[in-house]
Design a protein around this nucleic acid. Sequence first.
DNA 1: GATGTGACCGCCC
DNA 2: CGGGCGGCCACAT
Length: 147
Amino acid sequence: MARGERSEEAWAWYTAVYEAIQEIPYGKVTSYGHIAKLVGKPECPRQVGVCLKHLPSPSTDPSKKSPTWHSGNVPWQRVINARGGISPRGPSGASRQATALRAEGVHVDQGSMGEFTVDFGKFGWFPDVLPSEAGLVESSDEEEEDT
DNA sequence: GATGTGACCGCCC
DNA sequence: CGGGCGGCCACAT
């Protein structure tokens, strides 16, 4: 049955991804894999990238209803690969994303090859679950680990 | 309608 | 320690 309503499944998948990205605090960055895990698909980080690629524009055609998610509301720029590097989807695209991150106060290192990398140790945001879901989950006991 | 690919990640050898 | 491969979902042709 669900197979029939493929569009609905897609909407749920996209929404989950976009919501997870929106949960990323200002000045922080995360990886595709983590977003995928937050949405329940830790083995499907690629689709996360696909979602961002299909991310609608902020001010698209007024004739069409404004999409709930767009590049103006979804900080897709804070989403990078697990290596802390920005996907070279486009030389200018990567640099543009790096610049956007720097504008948010994120320290982005640039390699000799022009590879942009972010220090997850400082700006890496990797919560076990989304704050929204965390509130739903009862925190009976907390796991604290100290070195 | 089917096939291929894609902004990735983790694991195996 | 490094390289290679599979796997997943949705979109495009």
